[in-house]
Amino acid sequence: MNDLSAGFMEAVQLLIGGNAEVWEIVFLSLRVSLFATAVALLLGIPVGAGLALARFPGRSFAVGALYAGMGLPPIVAGLLVSVLLWRNGPFGAAGLLYTPAAMAIAQALIATPIVAGLTLASVSALDPRYRMQLLALGAGRAQTVWWLLREARFPLIAAVVAGFGAVISEVGAAMMVGGNIKGETRVLTTATVLEVSRGHFDTAFALSFVLLGLTYLVTMSLALLQRQPRPHLASR
């Protein structure tokens, strides 16, 4: 309990006091996670919408694989990216291992199936007659997909929240492909792990509070976008 309250106080002091190292960790965490989420949205939304709207042989298998991917353990994602970026690996020449770029790739790998799966669920949950109405209005294929995604925008925001939540809070992949290098690849989760290993529970709690606050701010901002006007129930 003492650690908890001391951690909270230290978190306030670290942020208000302008601790450069902490702010650097916060900004790197945000930068990597937001970039990974953006990549996940770019890849996941088209894949999810495509699986929801298209019918092709093997679709059931693809949907099953996607849902399995939503539960991809971060450590496995880290391992895959490590193998690919390892000095002798297929992309070793790029020299990305132990850089923020490698962390973003691993996190995008974790978030993409989550975003795609939730997009698939959101678009599938739309009344199928909307698609028919769009076709009847003369919408082309791209226009149909865009209007359906717009119609599903509120559940899609939940997909963004879930994707961001998964990457900002993961530690295994960030540690494995980033290496937790001070000033270079140290993010809030890996820094917390380090402080716990040193027995600095108050600092670990402080970093955890910062992480929680950050997650709350981002997800709350997205949740505000999700607010819908109340239907005019009386005249329905």
Binding site: R129, Q133, A136, L137, G138, Q143, W147, E151, Q228
Partner: peptide, 30 residues
Amino acid sequence: LRRALSVVFQDPLLFDIGALANAAAALRFQ
């Protein structure tokens, strides 16, 4: 050819946007 036709279904099936944007949808698609 569908652009020579308009369909009104049992439910109005309006999109979750403004009334004007709904009414202009087919024209925007053109």
